[in-house]
Each structure stands twice: as C-alpha cells, then as structure tokens.
Nucleic acid binder design. Structure first.
Lengths: 164, 164
DNA sequence: TTGTGTTATATAACGTGTTATGTAAATTCA
DNA sequence: TGAATTTACATAACACGTTATATAACACAA
C-alpha cells in the first residue's frame, strides 16, 4: 500500500490532482454512456451541447465556448460529421469561417440525450458532490476567475517581491 | 464573445472542467519552472518528489503513488533516466521488479527544487486558492473519496431505483 | 489599386495519458 | 513436481489535448 503522493503534495500538485479527478469523472461518465447506449463519447457531449444551446457556431466559437484549441475542435467536429451528427458549411459573409450545424440525426441524438441521459449523469455527479460546501461548482468558478485575473507567474512574482 | 458552455453545463461537464483547470495550472506551473530554469517539466515533478519522499520505488509503486498507469510511468522513468536523474535496477528478491532510484544528479536537482522552486509554486497556488472555503484541497479529497466509495455508475443505478 | 498585416482554419508534429498484448518471473494448486 | 495461474513490466497502438505552420480570405492604409 503506497501513499498517494499527489494528494500529499497539496498545493504543489493541485493541477495534476484536478486533472486526475477530471479524467476519473470522464471515465465514469463514459461507462454510463455506454450502459445507456449513447453512441458518442463523454468528451464529445459538451460540443454537441454547445451547438444545441447556442445554435450553429464557427470552429473558433466552439473553441472559445469549450475552452480548448481550434485544432482539437476541428478534429472532434470532423469525427462527429463523419458519424453524421454534424454538418459544416462555409459562412455566407466570410469564406474563411465554417459554421457547424447539427444534422437531423444529430438533433435526434441530442434530444434523446437531454431527455434520458444527461440528467442521469448530472444527478450522479450532484450526488457525489452533495456534501461539499461552497458549493463545489462555485469554487471551481473562483479558481477559474482567479487564474484569469492573475496567472501563477504573476502571483509568484508578486509574492517574491514581498520576501524579506 | 461566446458563453463558457462547460461552465454553464454545471455538474454535467464537471469532469471536463476540472481537467481544463488542471491543465491550465500545469501550463502556468511550466512557465514558472522555465523562468527558474528547472530542467524537468511540471509533469515530471511529482514522480521525482515521490522517490524523494518514499525512497526507491518500483514501477508499479510509482504508478500507484501518482495515480496513473504503469506504461505512463515506464515512459517518464525512461525519459528521466536518459537525462541522468534516475537509475533503474532490478530488485534482488524478484527479477520482475525494477527499482527506480535517484542518481546523484537527480538528488541535487530535487534538493534545489525543494529549496528554491517548489515552495514558490506552492505559494502561488495557495495565493490563488486563498479565498476559497473548505478549504479547497479538502473538497478535492472529498470528491476523490466519494468516487472511490461509489462510482458514478453505482450512484446512477441507485438514484434510478428511487424514481417513481 | 496594391501592399501589408490580421484572421480563420486545416494540417503536421509532439506530448501524455489510456488500453491491449506479450514475455518473463513468481506463485499457487493438484 | 509440473502445470496452471498470477504478477510485473515493456511495448505497441490509440485518443486527445497542445504548439507550430501553411494557406486562404479579409481588412486597412497609402
């Protein structure tokens, strides 16, 4: 039985630890999706949800909405388009922009996920977080906001200035 | 300006969100390490710290201590061994086991990191989390413990049983 | 109108996790 | 004791992020 070093390192390995928890949550979510026979992976659901929520979006807008890079979006979009859930059309006002739409098949998939599947996942995660103070999502928002306001580098430089 | 969909999805995309924050923290940490000229990346620090804290460890023990898979450890260990910071020797009592040691060079690197670098990173992350209730690390521990006790699948199955 | 700088996205390469598989060593069981 | 099973790790393949770069389209200034 070995000690959990990432946990023991506290703030020093907090990024690694959050990533690890996130990956575990995604893996658990994937198990549920497979049990409920949703034919797209856990990692692709936010992308479908974004288009459902906000309507057709460009590659760049999707990257912004999901907080990942454009090449990652390009790849996911192409995968989902190959499966028939998304269609990509050039924008009318700017040939560079590509607008990503849900297909009829994609719309049906999202409707089913919203009706039967995503609420189940949300409930399980809520159950997991039930006893946490904060609540937990607000704390995540605070960390995100804190990072956006000032990077770790900026914080370190400032704290260094305060040393005796 | 596009809405942050991952944030808006709340519990549904909590895993994705935590992963995203973790990656941001790791990227920020990497910037600091480069500024301070530590010649190993942010992702390799917990591995070095584990051996420093617990003494020489097998590949499997390292995987357990860090919560990642054995092939990932094998790769990182080989990378650090190539750089001269780690040495790998077969165990005396079991030919299958490989024990990972810090070299003299590795020891010096860790001593410098512990003296000058890791505390700076820890302080910056602490500063980031300063206003959070909980505190935040305890909440992460609660999530980890909750997942270990019951998976999302188990929770979903139980909640399903409660439906009218 | 032409030249320059910026923007949007595809593509390539890389890094770092995972699962699956193979091999050797150790352990267990009949 | 020998066969079957399990364990430890290397290796291969894959998934999914990132950065860097190329190309085309667009915007703007002279």
């Amino acid at each position: 039985m070995v000690e959990d070093v990432v946990k023991s390192l506290g703030f020093l390995a907090m990024g690694t630890r959050m990533k690890r928890i996130g990956e575990r949550l995604q893996a658990d979510t994937q198990v549920l999706l497979e049990a409920m026979e949703l034919p797209v992976g856990a990692g692709q659901c936010p992308l479908l949800a974004a288009i459902d929520m906000l309507g057709p979006l460009t590659i760049g807008e999707l990257a912004e909405a999901l907080g990942i890079t454009q090449p990652a979006i390009t790849r996911s979009v192409n995968q989902l388009a190959d499966l028939g859930y998304l269609a990509v059309k050039p924008a009318e006002d700017d040939q560079r922009r590509r607008i990503v739409h849900l297909t009829e098949q994609g719309r049906r998939l999202v409707e089913r996920a919203k009706a039967e599947i995503w609420p189940r996942i949300e409930a399980a995660v809520r159950d997991l977080c039930g006893g946490l103070s904060g609540p937990f999502l607000e704390q995540l928002a605070a960390v995100e906001g804190g990072l956006a306001a000032r990077s770790l580098k900026q914080r370190s430089d400032m704290l260094k200035g305060q040393e005796p």
